[in-house]
């Protein structure tokens, strides 16, 4: 495992932990899209089903279990926690996730490495992760609310994307037979949707800054 890959995993993990800590500390999830968080949970579950079939390393097993449980923990807070659930912008967070899930599933049936149960699900999770942030993007465009989305979270999420791309470049040049077009293409799209999200985050941040200044 190279340093980019490891750092990428760590920043990804930290971004989720930061989000969880923020929710816990403020007892609020205002501005956070439950639909995006649920899509991430679907992504993790469908990708990490191979926990039951293939063993790669202890590191992989532990990280997969942490990703799955932390994403469900965020969902639990947003749906079930007595106080946090009341701060969820239910009326604004209306993105139809079926518009993302169904096309991604169709695509994974058509374009995959191997037509098998786990492989199709794995491919589906790769496609879905690329667009999973869209409900959050739409919520941000509607409300300009960045209460729960701290700059730490945004930075860590961006670092994760950048480091994973460096990891692919590094692996391509250092490993024989390492090429994976499905992951590269969706990963690039995912980074592009993240950049869009980042742009609206900055926009909302500046808008909020202006509002809080005395006139």
């Amino acid at each position: 495992m190279n340093i980019f890959r490891f750092a990428g995993d760590m920043t990804h993990l930290c971004s989720i932990i930061v989000l969880l800590l923020k929710i816990q500390a403020t007892k609020s999830c205002a501005g956070l899209s439950l639909r995006t968080q649920e899509l991430y949970a679907i992504v993790f579950v469908s990708r990490y089903l191979d926990l039951f079939f293939t063993f790669i390393s202890m590191y992989n097993v532990i990280m997969k279990l942490i990703f799955i449980s932390s994403s469900f923990c965020i969902i639990w807070y947003m749906r079930c926690h007595r106080i946090v659930a009341q701060t969820y912008d239910r009326e604004q967070d209306t993105f139809r996730v079926a518009f993302l899930v169904v096309p991604c599933f169709m695509l994974s049936l058509m374009i995959n490495h191997e037509f098998s149960f786990t492989e199709v699900l794995w491919t589906f999770s790769i496609y879905l992760e690329a667009v999973a942030i869209l409900p959050q993007l739409v919520l941000l465009q509607r409300t300009f609310n960045i209460d729960t989305l701290t700059s730490n979270y945004i930075f860590l999420l961006g670092a994760y994307r950048a480091l994973y791309m460096l990891n692919w470049i590094y692996r391509y040049f250092t490993e024989r037979d390492y090429s994976q077009w499905i992951v590269w293409t969706s990963g690039t799209l995912q980074t592009a949707t993240y950049c869009d999200f980042f742009y609206y985050y900055i926009l909302s941040w500046r808008k909020n800054e202006r509002l809080s200044l005395p006139s």
């Binding site: 995993d9 990804h12 293939t54 790669i56 994973y164 037979d177 390492y178 994976q180 992951v183």
Partner: peptide, 10 residues
């Protein structure tokens, strides 16, 4: 690429 290298990333 091999089966393993494709699935060793998270």
């Amino acid at each position: 690429c091999t089966e393993l290298s494709r699935h060793d990333e998270l």
